[in-house]
Amino acid sequence: MAEKFPIADSPGVNTTLSPEKAPHWLRSALDVTGEDVVEIIGKRAQQDVLPSPKSAAVLMLLGGTSADDATVLLTHRSPHLRSHSGQIAFPGGKIDSTDVNLIDAALREAWEETGLDRTSITPLAHWGETFVPVRGNRINAVLAHWHTPGTVGVVNPEEADDVFVLPVEELLAPENRMMLAWDYWTTPAFRVNGYVIWGFTAAALTTLFLKTGWEQEWDQTPRLDLRAVIAASRNNERRV
């Protein structure tokens, strides 16, 4: 493990946003807000849900030199976890009191889950806090550019049992897009490598594609049953 991943993290290092260093193909995504992502998620429940007292920070890490070769870092959360088990997600987790700020939290979590060297990335923007009504989650997405890609992988399978760098072109392919439905709620989703990407992660990716103009036309007419699609996937989710 010591040869594959950074031996230690560097808490407090590289925790300042540098939007001026954003590559030109990511600049249009710097001003996304949490409300933009919520609009994509849609309203899943009619009842009021109180926000969680704790916030989470996730790292939305884009690599590459242009939109044509762009990649994104994703994880598969272990089915044994109590929260969001089996889901495909950006590296991230709860903001601790010892974290310098939410950027520090996102980078710490990324190192813990994937072995990411925080000095290899440039934090570009904080999309603002996204309140996900269904469970009251408060999520802060940190958009970053992976200027010097390195090795990442599974560090602790009890937390994330799959880590992969996915070409964005696979997510944009119309055949990998779908709309999922549960009762009156619909939301965009992706199907890649046997996994289904939905929820906040899918909404954030969709928002990114719309803001950057990368979005390709795809058929949004079919409304596939959420639970049936998840059950037939590799996600192995304990709760939908």
Rank of each mutant, 00 (worst) to 15 (best):
K4W: 10
F5I: 08
D9I: 09
G12D: 08
N14C: 11
E20L: 01
E20H: 00
A22C: 12
A22N: 09
P23R: 03
L26T: 11
V32I: 15
V37N: 03
E39G: 11
Q47W: 09
P53Y: 06
S55M: 06
A57T: 08
L61Y: 08
S66R: 06
D68R: 12
D69R: 07
A70Y: 03
T71S: 14
S78A: 13
P79K: 12
S83R: 13
S83W: 10
D99V: 05
N101Q: 08
N101F: 04
I103Q: 09
E109F: 01
L116Q: 05
D117V: 00
R118K: 11
T122V: 15
L124H: 00
A125T: 00
H126R: 08
G128H: 08
E129P: 02
R135M: 08
I139C: 00
I139P: 00
I139S: 04
V142I: 15
V142S: 00
H145Q: 11
T148V: 13
E159T: 11
V165M: 15
V165Q: 15
L166N: 08
V168H: 02
E169V: 06
L172W: 03
A173N: 15
P174H: 10
E175A: 14
M179T: 15
T186D: 12
T186P: 00
T187K: 04
V192S: 08
G194W: 05
Y195A: 07
V196R: 00
A204N: 05
L210P: 01
E215F: 01
E215C: 01
Q216S: 01
T221Y: 02
D225H: 13
A228W: 00
V229D: 05
A231S: 14
R234D: 11
N235I: 09
V240Q: 07
